[in-house]
Computed example of a mutant assay.
Amino acid sequence: MSLIDQLKDQMKDAMRAKEKVRLGTIRMALAAIKQIEVDTREELTDEQAIAVLTKMVKQRRDSIAQYEAAGRPELAAIEAEEIQVIETFLPTPLSEAEVAALLDEAILAVGASSMADMGKVMGALKAKVQGRADMGAIGALIRAKLQ
């Protein structure tokens, strides 16, 4: 079953269970996916849908930081609930050891030896870790290894 089909099934379940936060978040995710499908005039693959969901999580984390800085913990709590719902549809996160192993493998595969090769390493890793690890943190790990 595709990710989009899972989202639609979970939306129906949330409607039946009258879970307002879950229902609203799933509808938001489906709307974001549908918007991209309309803009590009093609159906999204699971990998592309995962990228959309990952972006939604990142946006909500940024919003939480801004709400907390502005002294609005109630809005930050709503964003945190939405993150929990979205993360149920993302693949399981990679452990630090798995990220390190993939990083070493990618560095060897592209023959990276300096910071000039960072883009090549990021390109090799992106498909493998999409939705399973924070690319910003991986970028910092790559910088540390290539210096």
Rank of each mutant, 00 (worst) to 15 (best):
L3H: 02
L3Q: 07
I4W: 04
I4R: 14
D5M: 07
D5A: 12
L7D: 07
K8S: 09
D9I: 10
D9W: 06
M11W: 13
M11Y: 15
D13P: 05
D13S: 10
D13Q: 13
A14C: 09
M15A: 05
A17C: 05
K18Y: 07
K18G: 03
E19I: 08
E19Y: 06
V21L: 10
R22V: 15
R22Q: 08
R22S: 06
L23P: 01
L23K: 09
I26P: 00
R27P: 02
A29E: 01
A29D: 04
L30E: 05
L30D: 01
L30I: 04
A32G: 12
A32R: 15
I33R: 03
K34H: 15
Q35E: 12
Q35Y: 12
Q35C: 05
E37I: 00
T40H: 09
T40M: 07
R41K: 11
R41I: 06
R41E: 06
E42D: 11
E43M: 09
T45E: 01
E47M: 10
Q48C: 03
Q48W: 08
I50A: 04
A51S: 15
V52P: 02
L53N: 03
T54P: 02
T54C: 03
K55L: 09
K55S: 08
K55E: 10
M56Q: 13
V57E: 04
K58V: 08
R60N: 14
R61K: 12
R61S: 07
D62S: 10
I64S: 02
I64Q: 04
I64C: 01
I64F: 00
A65N: 11
A65R: 15
A65F: 10
Y67N: 11
A70Y: 10
A70S: 12
A70M: 11
A70L: 10
A70V: 09
R72E: 14
P73C: 00
E74N: 07
A77V: 08
I78Q: 09
I78M: 10
E79A: 13
A80E: 12
A80C: 04
E82W: 05
Q84S: 10
V85D: 03
I86S: 05
I86Y: 03
T88Q: 14
F89Q: 01
P91E: 13
T92N: 08
T92K: 11
L94T: 02
S95L: 11
E96C: 02
A97V: 15
E98V: 14
E98T: 13
E98C: 09
E98L: 04
V99M: 06
A100S: 12
A101Q: 15
L103I: 04
L103G: 08
L103Y: 09
D104L: 12
A106W: 01
A106E: 00
A106I: 00
A106V: 00
L108K: 14
L108C: 07
V110A: 00
V110Y: 00
S113F: 13
S113T: 14
A116T: 14
A116R: 15
A116V: 15
D117L: 12
D117K: 14
M118K: 15
M118G: 05
G119D: 12
K120P: 00
M122L: 14
M122Y: 12
G123T: 01
G123D: 06
A124K: 09
A124Y: 01
L125A: 05
K126V: 06
K126H: 03
K126I: 04
K128I: 00
K128T: 04
Q130P: 02
G131T: 02
M135S: 10
M135H: 07
G136Y: 04
A137E: 13
A140R: 12
L141Y: 11
I142Y: 00
R143C: 05
A144Y: 08
A144R: 14
